[in-house]
């Protein structure tokens, strides 16, 4: 076997492994399953969202209603967070001025 062949084979194995890791989220953080994972999976890092959401949850509905409301808007968290400041859809959480959806997703994360 040529040296070039060995390197090409190694590269192919690594690419396959990387693809599998991405596909099956082998290195992603895993959380206990909740009824709201379709929403919560949009949060990149759930721990800080849970911490922040503790301050937001008191002024927002419970998890089931909040999730139902969030699902009515088909935009992703990222799309909404980017658009809302321009639409004056902002919230204040413990003094922090944030896009409304950030407060709501974080509150959901804190309740889930």
């Amino acid at each position: 076997m040529t040296r070039r062949g060995v390197l090409a084979g190694l590269a192919a194995v690594l690419a396959l492994a990387g693809g599998a890791a991405w596909k099956f989220r082998l290195f992603a953080k895993h959380y206990p399953s909740t009824p709201y994972d379709d929403l919560l999976d949009q949060i990149t890092d759930r721990e800080p969202a849970i911490v922040f959401g503790q301050a937001a949850r008191n002024s927002l509905p419970g998890a089931a209603q909040l999730a139902a409301e969030l699902r009515r808007d088909r935009r992703s968290l990222g799309e909404r967070a980017a658009a809302e400041p321009g639409e004056a859809q902002i919230a204040e959480v413990a003094g922090w001025v944030v896009p409304q959806s950030v407060a709501r997703y974080a509150a959901l994360a804190a309740q889930a």
Partner: peptide, 16 residues
């Protein structure tokens, strides 16, 4: 502080 960092990380990640 830790809470402020959580607020910043959560918001920045949502904004991409």
């Amino acid at each position: 502080d830790a809470f402020a960092t959580a607020a910043v990380v959560t918001t920045a990640q949502a904004l991409g």
